[in-house]
Write a protein that binds this DNA or RNA. Sequence first.
RNA 1: GCCCGGAUGGCGGAAUUGGUAGACGCUGGGGACUUAAAAUCCCUUGCCAGUAAUGGCGUGUGGGUUCGAUCCCCACUCCGGGUACCA
Length: 859
Amino acid sequence: MAIQTKDYDFSAIEPKWQDFWETQATYSAKDFEDKPTFYVLDMFPYPSGAGLHIGHPEGYTASDALKRFKKAQGFNVLHPMGWDAFGLPTEQYAIKTGKHPRETTEQNVARFKEQLRQLGFAYDWEREVNTTDPGYFKWTQWIFMQLFKKGLAYVEEKPVWFCPDLGTVLANEEVLNTSEGPRSERGSFPVERRPIRQWVLRITEYAEKLIAGLKDLDWPDSTKRLQENWIGRSEGAEITFDVSGHDAQLSVFTTRPDTLYGATYMVIAPEHPLLSKITTADQSDAVFAYAHKAKSKSDLERAELSKEKTGVWTGAMAINPVTGTEIPIWVADYVLMTYGTGAIMAVPAHDERDYAFAKEFDLAITQVIEDSGAAEKDASGALTQAYTGPGDLINSGEQSGNNSESAKNAIIEQLAADGRGEATVNFKLRDWLFSRQRYWGEPFPIAWVSEADYAQVDDSLKSVERPVSCELNGQLRFAVALQESELPLALPEVESYTPSPDGQSPLSKAGEWLHIYIDPKTGATSSEAVEGWIPASRETNTMPQWAGSCWYYLRYIDPNNTEALIDPEKEKYWGSPDLYIGGAEHAVLHLLYARFWHHVLYDLGVLSEPEPFKKLFHQGIILGEDGEKMSKSRGNVVNPETIIESYGADALRLYLMFLGPLEAMKPWNTNGIEGIARFLRKAWRLVVAEDGGVQANVSATAELDPETERVLHATIKKVTEDYESLGFNTAISQMMICVNQLGKAETLTTAAVETFIKLLAPLAPHQSEELWQRLGNTGSIAEAGWPQFDESKLVEDTIKIIFQINGKYRGDAQLPADVTKDEAIAAAKANAKISAHIEGKAIKREIYVPGKIVNIVAV
RNA sequence: GCCCGGAUGGCGGAAUUGGUAGACGCUGGGGACUUAAAAUCCCUUGCCAGUAAUGGCGUGUGGGUUCGAUCCCCACUCCGGGUACCA
């Protein structure tokens, strides 16, 4: 039932084939089919109200094309799609309109799905996942439960941004740093740091594994380096200093224990717990004023003020453990409570920050590493900048003369003997703040009980090694996991989606849902009191958006399993994704969090491999026509639907890939799509004649001239290689060369035309299917196999040899492909232009690059 | 500041990683078909000089290695991205 048109009518053809793929389930993956598998994964979108923008189809076209290519090559292909549907904009919309986020989500998903369909992306919709679906988040909650029981989750009062005017907690990126202090991005209201109870995941416990695991991943080097820097492993030592006149001790982390003799003062962070204890009476006003001010600053502010060092002397002194000298202890916000021990030994001679601070406050600077003239000094020989390089130790007692590298160990050993220090490793990576005081997220499957009741609770419901407790309404409470059969723990219906004025989640007002009784043996719950059960209140925080996106790629493999997160047999069959395509903006957080969960699940025996994403590719960004980032405010946004209306989805897909390398950042240019439209029309006319039938010069028995045949085989080779390496732009240019050549040929074999259409099909699937059908074939072109090239067809009997004089092009000639060096050089000399150039010169050297170049060096 | 990318015609980009720089496409110019337009086809299009043959210049800048450099080395400029006192 081909639609009989002579023109390429994409608006009729495209929906026809979209229906076909859907009803025929052309791209539904079959578990355990006896074929090699290929799992290609896209980063799933957040279904926003704005719909798809041009950036989405870029990566998705690449994965769709690759999927079709691999399918044609005979792979059992898995290419699913889903929705990262918990999230802030939907919740904000609910707060504004009162509409349930679930409804908004449904509408947005429907719209996204329709748009993806219009682009011809043939996903396996039977495996669709949605993070807000109870059948899905049941397992998100289940994973959290395992983390909790394994001791990888805890609760802490953490300072978070709170905006009293908006009545909500804000994420770091929602807070702007203004001249009037930190303000909310929305509405520019003042915000403040408030300690609010938070769940935190111990990702730092996996820091070592997360660094080590990077080694074997086929990822862009820059992304690996980014993760490595983010985790920020550094080796050094923890050294303990005595505080004069106190029995307190101050521990510091340093990567330069070799400079210990040069530690002339110490600095502790404003939040350091020892601060109030060691501060002397005369200094306390200044110290506490300073500490208070530092607390209200954002990390951002602290960093921005980095040029000027600020601080106050606490009045206390510490004792340098190797020199025995008393050194002052300062408080300053350039020391962060969140890294190391929250205190440092300051070595101004060999650390830039310490140097700047010492200069600002006129503190002693003792050089202990010989710079051998490498550092700048003033007339008196004092350092005018910190020397951070290596060298021999000076002014360092018995260590003097020792090299700085070996002195690191020597000093650690010397300290360790006294119990004053040991070698340690520190990470920049912090534990993962895992809770939000919001409505639209996964509820935690946790209940809080009293200490006495906690004692009765079965160990299987506890974090046994590390019990989790906190104060709720002034009372000590302990965390208990619910029974697994209580999952999924659904969100209660609430009257308002707005957090309460004190920053508590909207769930804290869901009274009936909140207060429960729990069976201490099994973790079963009831809303009514039961004999022997204990009263409990549910956790009211919800999980962050990351939670659902951390493991969705696993669920595609077994989306409807109600008994397990994933069937181990299916997991082994499909393995982890063979290729993951997504933006570089997720290089750190999403990819790190997902790796963390995957490692944990592997350690729990749920998964068979420790790393989730073997191969990763970042598509670039499509800029507006003005070369700027597309944004509504700039008015340079290109809408995919408009392009599809005027050129069709195939043209859009091809053009997106033709713009430049997939990984590059490249500007959109609407004019350029004409070339692609022309190319598609040429391909169409190769098959379809004026009268709508098949072209008369195409037949099974026709002759194919040798040059056309050579180009065709060269195209098979180039396109196959380029698809494999995601080099779609060059594959398209080769197909353009090919279509031009085929168009010139007097007659064409059906086989030649079919070969070309098969090559085109991954990128322009609608038109290719249509042409395939009009040539008399049935079924999808994806099931017709992938063309093989014949190496012998690529060999040309004559080759063009370039003649150069002194490396400069002076002529060329067609010579037999098997020409020898001597023959080639002779041919060059026989060339009129060449002989003119060597006339009267002495030939110094003759170079022949086989099949390419003759270069005669003559002076 | 540090860490990554990148710089090639009027524009997007290509170049088997050391072998004719500018494939392919857009734009511009000229022509054919047409009553006309669209569509299609052909020629042309890096810069300078020249009617031309041809010659010179040319891959951000300056050096170097080489018979030969967009590609390798050294120094620098500009642009983009990430990161932020991590001891």
